[in-house]
Amino acid sequence: MAPLRIVIGRDEEGVAAQPEDSPTTKKPARPDSRVPLTRWEAAAAAAVFLIFSVGLFCIFLTMPEGDYDKILRLPRNLSDLRVLKDNLAIYARDYQAKFILGYCSIYIFMQTFMIPGTIFLSLLAGALFGVIKGVILVVFSATSGASSCYFLSKLIGRPLISWLWPEKLRFFQAEIAKRREKLLNYMLFLRITPSLPNTFINLASPIVDIPFRIFFLATLVGLIPASYVTVRAGLALGDLKSVRDLYDFKTLFVLFLIGFISIAPTILKRKRTYE
Rank of each mutant, 00 (worst) to 15 (best):
E175H: 11
R272A: 11
R39V: 12
A43L: 02
T251E: 03
D69V: 12
I119C: 12
L81G: 00
A29Q: 03
N185P: 12
A29L: 12
C104A: 13
F109I: 03
A218W: 08
A92N: 04
G130T: 08
G126V: 08
P265M: 00
A174C: 09
D209H: 13
L235P: 03
I214A: 01
L121I: 14
E41P: 01
Y228L: 11
P36F: 10
T251S: 05
Q173W: 02
I136Y: 15
I261H: 14
P211Y: 06
L56H: 05
I59S: 01
A174V: 12
N198A: 13
C58V: 07
E65I: 01
D11Y: 06
N87E: 14
W40L: 12
V254Y: 11
I90Y: 12
P211G: 15
R180H: 08
V54F: 10
C104H: 12
S262R: 10
L78A: 06
T62Q: 05
G134Y: 00
I71H: 00
L128W: 08
R82E: 04
F216T: 11
L237F: 11
Y274M: 10
V135Q: 06
F99E: 02
K85T: 06
F189T: 05
F260H: 13
F256M: 12
I108Q: 00
L4I: 09
L88K: 06
I161G: 12
A174S: 14
F113L: 07
D80H: 01
K154N: 09
Y186Q: 09
L155A: 08
L184G: 09
P265G: 02
L137Y: 03
I71L: 04
S242A: 12
W165K: 13
P197C: 01
A97P: 07
G134I: 07
F109V: 07
L217G: 15
A218M: 04
E12S: 11
S53G: 01
A226K: 07
Y150C: 04
L152C: 09
G130K: 15
N77P: 02
P19F: 00
A125T: 05
I100Q: 02
K178Q: 15
I263T: 06
R158E: 10
C149Q: 03
Q111K: 03
D94Q: 12
E181L: 15
P206N: 04
L121V: 15
I210R: 00
P159S: 03
F215N: 04
D21C: 07
E13N: 13
P19S: 10
D209C: 11
G14F: 03
L190W: 03
V54L: 00
V139R: 06
S53L: 01
P3A: 14
E65H: 08
R5M: 09
V7A: 09
V231M: 09
E41N: 03
L164S: 07
M63Q: 10
S122H: 08
A44M: 05
R170L: 13
G126H: 06
A2K: 13
T219G: 09
V15R: 15
T112F: 00
I59M: 00
